[in-house]
Amino acid sequence: MSRLSLLLVLLVVLTAGCNGISSGSSAPDRDPYGVDDPLESSLANPGENVAGLTEAGFQNDTFVRDHHAVLENRSYATTQTTTATLANGTTVFEGHVSTLYDRRHNQMLQTERTRGSWELNTDGSDLEERTTQLWVDEETETRISRIEHENGSVEFDTGPPRYSRATVYSAVSPLREAAEIAIERETYADGRYTVVTGTEPAADSTFLEDEPFSARAFIRDDGVVRYAAINVTIRRDGERVHVDQNYLVEDIGEVSANRPDWYEEAKEELEREEQRERTPKAETETEIED
Rank of each mutant, 00 (worst) to 15 (best):
D210A: 07
R165P: 12
R146T: 02
D123K: 05
N231W: 01
E283Y: 11
M1R: 12
V168L: 05
L7F: 02
R276C: 02
L270W: 11
A84F: 11
L208M: 15
V255M: 03
G17F: 08
R65F: 15
D126M: 00
D237I: 02
Y193E: 04
I183D: 01
D36C: 08
R3N: 12
V13Y: 15
G152A: 13
F213V: 11
F207V: 14
T199C: 10
V9A: 05
A229K: 04
G57E: 08
D251Y: 04
R276K: 08
E274G: 02
E274I: 00
P38K: 13
E285V: 13
S153Y: 03
L109N: 00
T79F: 06
E177V: 11
R74F: 06
A202K: 09
E40W: 06
A16Y: 12
A189P: 03
S23E: 15
L175H: 11
R272P: 04
T194L: 06
R278H: 12
R162K: 05
T199S: 14
T140D: 05
D102R: 01
T140R: 13
T114M: 09
E141N: 14
I219P: 02
S75F: 06
A217C: 08
T284Q: 13
P161E: 14
D244F: 01
D29F: 07
H96Q: 12
D210V: 06
A69F: 04
Y193C: 01
E239I: 04
L270Y: 08
G152F: 09
L175E: 13
T233I: 11
E274R: 15
R259H: 10
P260R: 07
S214I: 02
V249T: 07
G238I: 09
A203N: 12
S26L: 09
G89T: 11
Q275K: 08
R259P: 00
T132F: 07
D244I: 04
E55T: 15
N258S: 13
H96L: 15
P32E: 11
E200N: 08
D102P: 03
R65Q: 15
P46N: 07
T197S: 13
E72L: 10
E138D: 12
N231H: 09
V136S: 01
A44P: 05
E264H: 02
E48N: 12
N19W: 09
L14P: 00
N151E: 14
T194M: 11
L8Y: 05
T81N: 15
E129T: 12
M1D: 13
T142E: 10
D66Q: 13
L4S: 01
S41K: 10
L10A: 12
E265M: 06
A189R: 14
D290K: 09
E239A: 11
V13I: 15
A27V: 11
H105C: 00
A51P: 02
E141K: 11
V232E: 13
S23P: 12
A203W: 13
E264W: 00
E128W: 04
N121D: 14
H105G: 01
L8D: 10
L175M: 14
E209L: 12
A203C: 02
V241K: 10
V241H: 09
F156M: 03
A266K: 01
A56T: 06
H67M: 01
S98G: 03
R113F: 05
A228E: 06
T79M: 04
L71F: 07
T131D: 06
E289H: 04
E211P: 00
L8F: 09
L270A: 10
N45H: 12
G223V: 03
S41D: 14
F58W: 13
I183V: 15
